[in-house]
Amino acid sequence: MRVWKFGDNIDTDAIMPGRYLSIYDPHVLAKHAFEGTRDEFAREVKPGDAIVAGKNFGCGSSREHAPIALKGAGITMVIAESFARIFYRNAINVGLLPVVCDKAGSILEGENVMVDLIGGYLIVDGRKLSIEPIPEFLMRIVDSGGLVEYACGLQEVPVCTASHQ
């Protein structure tokens, strides 16, 4: 899969501009991903491509339209030095894999990258880069394929207190 390289602090307004937020269809949203900031992305992205970015990817608005659009565009994983909290969790919930790699900066535009989650590393054109493990409670959601799939089978959840108040 080919790498699309981005910098630091890529916010969710850049990933999905505010004027499209009344749309929820992943494929329609995908057509507007990075509109105005990187127009060739929506035109040229191919299923299986990856995004590689610097610090604080997905900062700003909680709009799930952002990871949904990337997934709709065929992106399967986003590798970054760090993620904004809400985006990270949203990505896992919708089945887009966020990978934290402190050496993300060494990955170049257009390189090929593969991930081994169990081994805990990326293979980038033959180089091996270690990645941070996904927290255990979120890994269960990743394994299910997303939060909807995880929650589907549950009737109740083990809330940490019996009484509600």
Binding site: S62, R63, E64, I86, R89, N90, N93, V94, P135, F137, G146, L147, V148, A151, L154, E156, V157, V159, H164
Partner: peptide
Amino acid sequence: GIGSTDMGFALKFGALYFR
């Protein structure tokens, strides 16, 4: 602040995972 899928979960279960 949370995303919509987490909110769907909170609507269904009245609870959510927090670190």
